[in-house]
Simulated assay, not measured.
Amino acid sequence: DTLDDKVLESTLAESLADLVPDEKTVSEDEFVEVVGGALEAVGGTLLFKMCVQNEGEGQHVAAASVGDGGNRQFLLLTLPTGGGALKVETIS
């Protein structure tokens, strides 16, 4: 079954909210650990990750997939390197 995009986004964001501190520098290893754990909970797979500069601010970015075959959904996860809210978006 395909999860509704908004349900999938909110489920991942909620599961990650408690794991990511608001005001702490987040290392790449911490980002991968948190994202990997959340994806495991929904049967997802981390496809790749990188750190980028966005308007002068560092951000961890990851792409992931959930499901397989015709039910596969792709996600984009972003988190400021300085801490804050993780953003989860489905990609069509």
Rank of each mutant, 00 (worst) to 15 (best):
E14V: 02
D29F: 07
A63M: 14
L75C: 11
V34E: 13
A85L: 13
T81F: 00
H60S: 06
E30T: 03
V32Y: 05
D5P: 10
L76A: 15
D5R: 07
L16E: 01
V7P: 01
G56W: 04
T45V: 11
L77Q: 06
G82D: 14
T78D: 07
L76K: 15
Q59S: 13
C51A: 12
V61Q: 07
S10P: 03
L46C: 00
E57V: 14
E89F: 07
L76R: 12
L16M: 15
D1W: 06
G58P: 13
E89A: 15
E33P: 00
L12K: 01
E23V: 00
P80W: 01
G43F: 07
A41G: 03
V34T: 08
T78F: 00
G67A: 11
T81S: 10
V52F: 00
I91C: 03
G69A: 06
R72L: 12
T45W: 08
L3T: 10
E28S: 13
E30Q: 04
E9P: 06
K49N: 12
K49I: 04
E30R: 00
E33W: 01
G58V: 14
D68L: 04
N54D: 14
S27M: 06
C51D: 05
G70H: 08
V88W: 09
G67T: 09
M50T: 12
E55F: 09
S27R: 11
V35K: 09
L79M: 06
K87M: 08
N71C: 08
G82C: 01
S27G: 10
E28Y: 10
G36T: 04
T78Q: 14
L8A: 12
S10Y: 11
S92D: 14
L46S: 05
L47T: 14
T2V: 13
Q53L: 08
K6P: 06
L79C: 13
H60E: 02
L86M: 10
L79N: 09
V66H: 02
E89Y: 13
A17H: 02
E30G: 00
Q59Y: 15
G44K: 00
G56C: 09
V42G: 09
L79F: 04
V32D: 10
M50V: 09
E28F: 13
T81R: 06
K87D: 15
D1N: 15
F48G: 12
E14S: 03
E33F: 02
L8H: 09
P21F: 04
T81A: 11
Q53I: 15
T2C: 14
V66D: 12
G84D: 11
T78A: 13
E55R: 11
G67H: 03
L76M: 14
G56I: 06
Q73E: 06
K87S: 12
V26D: 04
D1I: 14
